[in-house]
Amino acid sequence: MTSSSTSPASAMPGLARFNAADGDVALALLREVCASAAWAREILARRPYPDAEALLGASDAAVAALGTGDLDEAVAGHPPIGRPAPGDPVSAREQRGMAGAPAGLRAEMLELNLAYQEKFGHVFLICATDLTAEHLYDAIRNRMDNTPEREREIVRGELGRINRLRLARLAVHPVSEGATRP
């Protein structure tokens, strides 16, 4: 057997470990990717995944199928933009575009975050990876004019993008015992 005939999952140590992990461990890892229990159970039920694309496709389908309460649960697991969860390297990494923002822009983002949450009933959710503070500011300002229905669909799309990035990281990086947060 040549090295080119190895299975795609075996070429991705994190995916191989995820596929082989005990159900409780795998579920905990998934809940770190997305706070929705329904999403995590759906992804867990489809294991093993032959490759990352299958895992990502399953995630896309699970996000699309989330009911209102499940989507709310998923969004509730995300800290506001500009205020990553203390001690959480994942949210800090994902929101690093806000880290060096001027104080005035950070204050405006806080104000907009509060107005957004008042209007829509949840945190402003955006896939913030690689976005600048200015881009995040423009995005929240633009989305404030959306209807709740339109915003819910945008949030669903952003959640899907976030989950994809986190799952891709989980698939590539080996998962160690007791580790959380891909």
Score class of each variant (00 low, 15 high):
Thr6Ile: 13
Met12Asp: 10
Met12Glu: 13
Pro13Val: 07
Asp24Phe: 00
Leu29Gln: 11
Cys34Phe: 10
Ala35Asn: 04
Ala38Met: 04
Arg41His: 15
Arg41Met: 06
Ile43Gln: 03
Leu44Tyr: 01
Ala45Tyr: 06
Arg46Asp: 09
Arg46Leu: 09
Asp51Lys: 02
Asp51Gly: 11
Asp51Gln: 14
Glu53Phe: 02
Ala54Leu: 01
Leu55Trp: 15
Ser59Gln: 03
Val63Cys: 10
Leu71Trp: 12
Ala76Val: 05
Ile81Thr: 10
Val90Trp: 00
Arg93Leu: 07
Arg96Ile: 07
Met98Leu: 04
Met98Gln: 09
Leu105Lys: 05
Ala107His: 09
Glu111Met: 04
Leu112Thr: 02
Asn113Glu: 11
Asn113Arg: 08
Tyr116Asp: 12
Tyr116Met: 05
Gln117Trp: 02
Phe120Met: 04
Leu131Trp: 12
Leu131Cys: 11
Thr132Asn: 13
Leu136Lys: 00
Ile140Ser: 00
Arg141Gln: 10
Met144His: 03
Asn146Ser: 07
Asn146Asp: 14
Thr147Glu: 15
Pro148Ala: 02
Glu151Ile: 12
Glu153Trp: 01
Gly157Gln: 15
Gly160Val: 08
Gly160Ala: 10
Arg161Pro: 01
Arg164Met: 09
Arg166Ile: 05
Arg166His: 09
Leu167Asp: 03
Val172Asp: 14
Ser176Glu: 08
Ala179Arg: 04
